[in-house]
Design a protein around this nucleic acid. Structure first.
Lengths: 219, 219
DNA sequence: ATATTATTTTAGACAAGTCTAAAATTTATT
DNA sequence: AATAAATTTTAGACTTGTCTAAAATAATAT
């Protein structure tokens, strides 16, 4: 088993590699895990000894397949817990990160699979990020802004860009919520506003400004 | 904030004091937290410096009010999580301890109050142990052995004494579970075995040996 | 191509929690 | 009450993860 701290380094490295596509620097990791470059170097040696990363002095780091698997497992747990906190316990989207940061280190495969089942196997978390499956596979269903979809497209709401209370309340009132199915009925050329159908039921109009703050994936 | 390790020591001391009513020995703590007596002494100094315990060399330990409050908070979290695991995620009574042992250290007052609310403010956990309230008060609704009730008494199952898998499986099979209402229909003089009605439904016979391992509170 | 600057690594130290072995203290035995 | 046995504490060391300051390496600028 990897320690709490090791897990945080692996997660940080995974995210930085994802972002840049390149080997990541000691400094970048130091900033991400909020520590000194010297401490990072120490830890990199340790992770390298454990074959969790590919590391050559001064040359940056990438994850080994073993390391990536470990990172994806933590990310899976993080995102499922976030989902649980928002969907089941009614936390706001912006309150859950720090708590999930702790819960992600709880070690029980059975627990996380039960949470997954309880949540009905969600594929994206409340921020629209995809949830790796139990085998650590990321079936990257990339979220797009709702404004990028075309007429007659059907998609699932996966998240928002603007997390402000006023925006979330507006969405609530309009019946737009995470996991709902949206069909683009029409796109008004004049102002790029949308006529959409929610869950095969109500038709609603939303402005382009709103559409640019909603994330969704193709169904 | 107290560390993970400090929390475990406080919890151990609390339980040992509860059990004996006396100051607890270094050795007893060492056994409980599975470490050496020397390590315990080191930690006792630290907890004493933090005013969490009353400690005189060679004289044993009790919790200060500050320490007791901290211990009760951890115990509250532990028992609520156990309740959650059993009631919501369908874990068996005997599977939840190790997981709750980890979850109890997650630090978020808001989280634990939401779990409490979600569970509808339970007063006993799946093992029949009382759950301290949000202020760390233990409103001890005293449980009694089922063998102590009288004919025609009605009570609610709150826990078990024997936590073995075989016993819990026997209870499952007999339809006896936490929170169920039991009416004592008859007490057989010869062997003190009981005829009981479960949830106003099935009648079941249980031996005195079984009744002595079930806890319940008067309804 | 060399000097300057920025980044990364090493060296040595510290805090938390642990250990074993030895010393101090308490408890039990005769 | 003196000795033996058990318990507890101290001393010194180890591990993990951290730090600062200095040295090594790489990147940038002239």
């Amino acid at each position: 088993m990897n320690s709490f701290t090791e897990e945080n380094y692996l997660k940080a490295i995974y995210k930085l590699v994802q972002l840049s596509g390149l080997a990541v620097s000691t400094n970048a990791i130091a900033e991400k895990v909020n520590t000194s470059a010297a401490s990072v170097t120490d830890m990199l040696k340790k992770l390298s000894d454990k074959k969790l990363i590919h590391y050559k002095k001064y040359q940056g780091v990438t994850l080994s397949s073993k390391g990536e698997k470990a990172a994806l497992k933590i990310i899976r747990k993080h995102r499922l817990w976030e989902m649980f906190l928002v969907d089941i316990l009614d936390f706001k989207w912006d309150e859950v990160h720090d708590i999930a940061e702790q819960l992600e280190h709880v070690n029980s495969d059975k627990l996380i699979e039960k949470i997954d089942k309880f949540l009905n196997h969600p594929i994206v978390d409340p921020h629209g990020d995809p949830i790796p499956d139990a085998n650590g596979k990321l079936n990257n269903p990339k979220s797009h802004l709702l404004s990028f979809f075309n007429k007659n497209d059907v998609c699932i709401i996966t998240g928002v860009v603007d997390h402000s209370t006023s925006f979330l309340q507006y969405l609530d009132k309009s019946g737009i919520a995470l996991g709902h199915e949206i069909k683009i009925k029409d796109i008004i050329k004049f102002d790029r506003s949308l006529k959409i159908t929610i869950n095969k039921g109500n038709n609603v109009f939303i402005s382009n400004d709103v559409a640019k703050n909603i994330l969704a994936i193709n169904k």
